[in-house]
């Protein structure tokens, strides 16, 4: 069974489960993916399947990528190429289609996405600093204040400070597949998934 699938985050909504409970779900338009390269232990040092997902226009396709896709024999221009490590490459062939039905309802999965960018964020937002009072004469409200002791007269590396936040790769583990619609290439995951709507999401079978 293929270990994961690439998809586009569509957004969130609710569904009702069998017992009438409301479940918040993230809808992901996943696949179809096409096998573009098969990496083997003998040739590449490890076993993996490289797959492509999504569409792009001819205009934006680079010649190296064009050649790579042509070699794999896939028809459409695939925007994203990603590798999935597998134990054995048996049963995979170039150009093979992989659809969302690699998952079934009830399975535990991890979702990997690129979190929304927050720009240059302060310590309160970025590291959950408590900040100071908003009133009662305080003239500092959201500053980081002390950066450490006066003992070593320097600030330790890795001290939490304001700075750039977001656009990091984030893995959300422990999600459950609520339902799979292989006709429309949709998969519903319980809970939220990192990233903006329309962003690339990798859904992996949970390692735990």
């Amino acid at each position: 069974m293929f270990p994961g699938i690439l998809g586009t985050k569509i957004g969130m909504t609710h569904v009702f489960d069998g017992e009438g409970r409301m479940v918040p779900v993230t809808v992901i338009q996943a696949g179809p993916m096409y096998v573009t390269q098969i990496k083997t232990l003998e040739k590449d040092g490890y076993n993996a399947i490289q797959v492509g997902f999504g569409e792009m226009s001819d205009k934006n396709l680079t010649w190296p990528k064009y050649g790579h896709l042509k070699k794999a024999g896939v028809k459409s221009n695939l925007r994203h190429l990603r590798e999935f490590r597998v134990d054995s490459v048996d049963g995979f062939s170039l150009g093979q289609e992989i659809k969302v039905d690699v998952f079934e309802a009830g399975e535990a999965v991890d979702a990997i996405g690129i979190s929304k960018g927050r720009g240059f964020a302060g310590g309160v937002k970025r590291h959950h600093f408590r900040g100071q009072h908003m009133t009662h004469g305080y003239m500092t409200h959201r500053r980081p204040l002390s950066s450490g002791a006066t003992g070593p007269q320097r600030v330790f590396k890795g001290t939490r400070k304001p700075g750039h936040m977001g656009t990091d790769q984030v893995t959300q583990s422990g999600l459950k597949v609520v339902s799979v619609d292989s006709e429309r290439n949709l998969v519903l995951l319980s809970g939220s998934v990192p990233g903006a709507n329309g962003a690339l999401v990798t859904v992996n079978r949970s390692k735990r």
Binding site: I10, V27, L186
Partner: peptide, 14 residues
């Protein structure tokens, strides 16, 4: 559209 997909997911439960 994305919203149309979301609506269609919720539609059977309405």
């Amino acid at each position: 559209s994305k919203q149309a997909i979301l609506d269609s997911v919720a539609q059977p439960f309405l």
